[in-house]
Each structure stands twice: as structure tokens, then as C-alpha cells.
Design a protein around this nucleic acid. Structure first.
Lengths: 185, 185
DNA sequence: GTCTATATTTGGATAGAC
DNA sequence: GTCTATCCAAATATAGAC
């Protein structure tokens, strides 16, 4: 009979994500991915026959599902401003208060296959679209809502760049604190 | 007699920068660096006996000197707002309208030696400090000036993250257009 | 499903000729 | 200063035992 997996999918993806987040696509070596997951390289190939590209895509899928949860208040709270604020708090926690890097930043570096880059863009677009929707429900015009959401995304990602450079999550947290005003004007 | 170098320092650094920018530290292989510069790997080691770390540091030094030029209006224009706007225009051009990645984002990824990471942080700090100084000359309080400059840095870097993901420099350019208001309040 | 072992390529780095 | 040749470690990837 089949042996049960020693690490279940979501935890496996999370451990892979940790490597991709801090190292980028090319920098994430099979050795580092194997060490982080506790699996041997050959076992990773059993789970992901297409190799590193498939691992990166699985990580992005996992991030997409996690973001569904983070964005849920922003999507459903009838009090739009309160929903945005609650989602902001979840996002802040997800990124370790601003000290963790984001795969959407580090994964699309050179070396990543197109399908990985496109998947990363799709995940980012889901996040931005959710913010734009909230802005519209908050009364902003179509175009304003979209560009405000794009700017919000950039401010959060930039906060993470600052956090990686200086080990200080303050600008990241300020960006999230501004999120309701940014989106609702 | 000594053979003249086939590529002069600044151009050499620029070509190395292109690789580090798009690939990060680990992703920038000696092969890619050699191809980009037109030198063989052994020739790169003649120029940089300490190898890749020294190349990355040289690139950061070059970026620091280039930023001196970009920031000159912001540092010297008696009309603070006009100086910020002129520097913003130079920065926009430097980053290809928002479609080029920034070494300050990609170089400090995992794999980079501490001295490279520290050098990147020092370069970023020079930029942020120049913006904070301008904000102070524009009348902002000490602390406000610093956090405004940090936020401005994050918004520009985040714009570049967006640009890499979507091939669209619009949010980056919006961030730079906001720079005077961001810094002067 | 995970492992050891292995094939093959690419990585970083050095020696020595020109 | 640049090159070819070379060394060795680490990279991706596969085969086959358990």
C-alpha cells in the first residue's frame, strides 16, 4: 500500500515558500528547498515532477488561497472601512509585521519561467482587484478605485523592501494603517 | 606594457548592475555576468579578486555615485519643492520609467554576504536621508521628515515591484509625481 | 512516498600562457 | 588585462531499491 506523505501539502508549500521568499527563484536551490521541507531532493521531484517551476507555482497557489482568507473582511464586511482595516491587520500579521519578504516581489526575478511570472502577476492582480472592489463599494469612481488599489499594493510591497533592507517594519505598518484612507480617499 | 582594459570601470559596473538588478545576488551567475560584460570569467576575477561579492559592492558604489547626481537638485535648489520635482524626474528616467528593477531590492536577497547587504542599506539610507533633509528644509519637523522620506522610498520601490510584475510603470511614476507633496506635506 | 546512488551540467574560483 | 584550461563543489534531474 501507498506510504502516507511525511509532510502534508499546505505545510510543504509553506516551507517551500519560505525559501522562495528569501532567495528568489534562481536563488532557491533544490538543496535549500529539500532542507527546509525535510524531504530529500528526489522526494521533491516525486511530488513535483516538473521540478522547481512546479514548486514555485504550488507556492503561489497556496499564497493565493491564504490571501482569500486575509481579504475576506475587505470583501464581505458591510462596513467597508472596517473591513479594510481588519484585512490590513491580517496582512500585517501574515508578513510578520513587515519583516518577511513577499514571493510576489522575489519570485518574478530573472530565471523564473514565464508561467511562474504570470502566476505571480495573477495572484497580485487578485489582491489589487479585491482592494479596488472595496474602494468602489466605498464610493470611489471606477478609475480612481483601480489606481488607488495599485498604489496601495505598491506601498505595502515597498514597505517590505524597506523591511528587508533595514530590518524595520515601521514603514510597512504605516502603509497598512493608511490602507482605509488610501482606498476610500 | 600593460594592456588597456577592454571595458572601462563605469561601463563595466553598469553591465554588472543589469544582471544583479534582474537576477538578485545568487541568481547572478558568473556566466551571466561574464556574458553581460563581454569578459571571460577569469578576466572578471582579475578585476574583482574577491569575486562576486566585490562585484556587487562595486555596483552598489556606482549606484551611490549615480544617485548623487540624481539627488543634486533636491539637495541644492533653493526652491525646495522645485528641487524635489527635478530629482524625481531624474529618478524616473534612471529607472526606465518604472520598468527596471532596483538593486536595493534584489541584491539583499538570501545568499548575499553581509557586507553586500550592509552596503545596500547604506546606499538606500543615503537616498532616504537626502529626502528627509529636503523635507526639513521645506519646513517639516525632524521626525515627520524622516518618516515621510522612508515612506517615499517605500512607495518608489513598491512602484518598481509593480512594474516588474505587470510591465507597467504607471504606479511608479505616480509615486514620483507625488514626491514633493509626500515630502513637504 | 521516501530513500540512496548516480548522471550531467553549471556554479565559483585559480594557474599560467600570451 | 584577457584569455584557455582546469579544478572542485554545488546545481538540476533521473533510476531504481525499499
Amino acid at each position: 500500500m501507498a506510504r502516507p506523505p511525511s509532510v502534508h501539502d499546505d505545510e510543504l508549500y509553506d516551507r517551500l515558500a519560505e525559501v522562495f521568499r528569501t532567495a528568489g527563484y534562481e536563488g532557491a536551490s533544490l538543496g535549500a528547498l529539500a532542507e527546509s521541507t525535510g524531504l530529500k531532493r528526489a522526494s521533491l521531484y516525486h511530488r513535483f515532477p516538473d521540478g522547481k517551476a512546479q514548486m514555485a507555482e504550488a507556492v503561489l497557489g497556496r499564497v493565493e488561497r491564504l490571501f482569500d482568507g486575509l481579504l475576506e473582511p475587505m470583501r464581505t464586511d458591510p462596513d467597508v472601512r472596517a473591513g479594510i482595516a481588519r484585512s490590513a491587520a491580517r496582512i500585517a500579521e501574515f508578513y510578520g509585521g513587515g519583516l518577511l519578504s513577499c514571493v510576489l516581489d522575489t519570485l518574478p526575478l530573472s530565471g523564473a519561467p514565464d508561467r511562474v511570472r504570470l502566476r505571480a502577476a495573477a495572484v497580485a492582480d487578485g489582491w489589487i482587484s479585491a482592494m479596488a472592489d472595496a474602494a468602489r463599494r466605498g464610493g470611489r469612481a471606477e478609475d480612481d478605485a483601480r489606481s488607488a488599489a495599485e498604489d496601495a499594493f505598491a506601498q505595502v510591497e515597498g514597505g517590505l523592501v524597506y523591511g528587508r533592507l533595514f530590518g524595520d517594519g515601521t514603514p510597512f505598518r504605516r502603509a497598512l494603517a493608511r490602507l482605509p484612507d488610501l482606498l476610500l480617499g
